[in-house]
Amino acid sequence: MSGAHHDHLVLDDVTICYRRRPAVHHVSCALPCGSLVALVGPNGAGKSTLLAGILGWLPLTTGRIVWNGHELRGRPQFVGWLGQRRQQHGSFPIDVASVVAMGRYGQVGWWRGFTADDRTAVTQAMATMGIAHLADRAFHELSGGEQQRVLLARALAGGAEVLLLDEPLTGLDAVAVRDVLERLQAWVRGGRLVLLVLHDLAIVRAWCPYTVLLRRELIAAGPTATVLTEAQLARCYGRRFVEGGAAHG
């Protein structure tokens, strides 16, 4: 795999170990910008581990991760992130605008005040996620779908070019799922990249032009139609999964 490549997030021979056991083995692929990229695989396949590796939270045993010719790890200003489970305090006294503003902390640091640009970034992130009208509402008063959009706006507010979303659609109804995906799709058109961990293959087929299939090692990466084939899914999930018809999801 070549190293630096513009318009791609390049994973070059990435191996990540937990207590000396590899959770992700020698993964190499180039994820194209300007589209939603699905990261798919069974539970324990190393999807969240791979995201943690890209974020720089876990050391790479081998390999490197390159974005536009630069090592990406340890540069929080380039990467936005939304975690798998709700980590936020359920009834924390905070308004929506303040939650979204947290997304700028990676840029402005702990002490510098917000400039006009920072405030514009926060406003734009809220507009992108369609939550500008909720700016003064208390975060804990919002529905699950609205809260998820607020957290996505927080991830966008940092101005990151790469957005890593770990199961961002969990707990959302069909309308909210469609709304979130439409907004993310519009956001990536500017040449950005969204890497989503997803389990619903129907959603992957409908919304993500590019898919990475992972089971500790890379099963396949490429255009979704060529990756989500019965043979590849059988390798990834086991024969029974494909025979059960879930592969056509």
């Binding site: 939270w57 980590q87 936020q88 924390f92 902390y105």
Partner: peptide
């Protein structure tokens, strides 16, 4: 504030 509201995001911010 981040540690009290969302400690994992504090980590994401460095």
């Amino acid at each position: 504030l981040l540690e009290a509201f969302d400690a994992t995001f504090l980590r994401a911010c460095g």
